[in-house]
Design a protein around this nucleic acid. Structure first.
Lengths: 229, 229
DNA sequence: AGCAAACCTTGACCCAGATCAAGATTTGCT
DNA sequence: AGCAAATCTTGATCTGGGTCAAGGTTTGCT
């Protein structure tokens, strides 16, 4: 994780959802506590249990959060794309990292120091609200992941994942570009890669989707949503 | 859920972890937005999907949060005891209840209106920090539950649960009083009641614990922690 | 106390999905 | 382009834990 300051950190900050509504003064206050880093694909950012210095924000690229398993494998908790933040608990609870983090592609990210965040928090209630909304979102997401993983069959889980990718406009047909490897996605759905593969081919046989590499063509969103089994 | 005001709401508020450090003025500002309710055992507070009016705080008793399953059964997400709050996402994201809530015993709870919370938030950064810590805690808890449910065998899950009940002092021997029915606990661990029962008797056979109704006597905390399988 | 309704345990069986194994396809590097 | 490594698919087999069933125990109500 190499420091990186080609681009103005200030400009980057004001484009991130978490910080974009800050006033001039607040940005200035935050700035000294923010570092910009460049990461290479597959680079580890930190390991579960590490002491961290602040909140991480993805500027470009993608970060995978996961739990290492006793058997040396991993369970993916989530993948963070541009604009997403993580390691909040480290700031608000002062605990070591509860997950490991690894870049899936090269990218740029920010680390906003614990101190800077707390100061900002005390100064701008709108930021506090944003932070709370962001955490609530994560909580909600995690709960729905829990629901998916514990209550549904393998095929349902995949259907569920695809359903969440349905674009807002109610078109019956659309494409999903998987933004991670199928392995990673499988782990996130708590499935063995083989099972994920089988679930997909099951859906193909049922005529609901077509698979071309990491692009999945959904042929009927309605029918997909209704599909159970 | 019947309104209940025998006790001074003000006194109750100032004893809750979430509100106990508020100044006089802040309490006064919050008070009009807070309602006190009494609930009977097994009473439903709300169902998944309901529109809610604010944050719930358990004063006495216990509330079970769960997801109804398509088969009419339920998956317990967590049990909230005195001092715990829930339904935060409803305030910060303005979404319907993502879970159902039911009292497991009679008790008293507060509902702090969305409006009152947001006002308080804008006024006292310490409260914001507390709220953030509370949400972070939940996030952390949920992640470790996820870890337990997806990465461990049935026996390990039970061991894991018991291990978390180990009291701070390092005594090798201690008692755990289950604060819910075994069914509920089983569901929380994502186990069938039968499997939970078998896991317990497995641990009994291994000489690690003794079970007397809902009281579990752990005979060697060290050995329990190390136990896998 | 006495009965009904929950709750818990134990046994027998079964199945969804993990694991193992072997090939096919894609990706990345020089 | 060409090779090695990573990724994905498909098949065969195995097993942990769910389900069904039946009995025992506790709880709560009148």
């Amino acid at each position: 994780m190499t420091p990186y300051t080609l681009e103005s950190t200030r400009d980057v900050l004001t484009r991130l959802p978490l910080f974009c509504e800050l006033g001039e003064g607040d940005v200035d206050r935050l700035l000294p506590g923010v570092r910009e880093y460049r990461v290479r694909a597959h680079e580890m950012l930190f390991n579960k249990g590490d002491a961290l210095d602040g909140i991480y924000v993805v500027v470009t690229g993608q970060i995978k959060l996961f739990l290492p398993t006793p058997q040396g494998s991993e369970k993916v908790i989530g993948t963070m794309n541009s604009g997403a933040s993580f390691a909040e608990a480290v700031v608000f609870l002062d605990i070591p990292a509860p997950v490991s983090a690894q870049a899936t592609q090269e990218g740029v990210l920010l680390v906003a120091s614990k101190h800077a965040i707390i100061e900002l928090l005390d100064h701008d209630p709108r930021f506090a609200r944003k932070m709370l909304a962001s955490l609530s979102m994560k909580l909600h997401q995690l709960m729905s992941d829990m629901e998916t993983c514990t209550l549904m069959s393998s095929v349902q889980r995949v259907v569920c994942y695809l359903s969440h990718q349905i674009p807002a406009e109610g078109l019956p047909e659309f494409e999903v570009k998987l933004d991670t490897s199928k392995q990673t996605l499988a782990s996130q759905l708590s499935l063995a890669p083989e099972t994920f593969s089988r679930a997909l081919s099951h859906l193909v046989k049922s005529g609901l989707i077509e698979v071309h590499g990491r692009t999945i063509h959904v042929k009927d969103a309605q029918r997909l949503r209704a599909f159970q089994g």
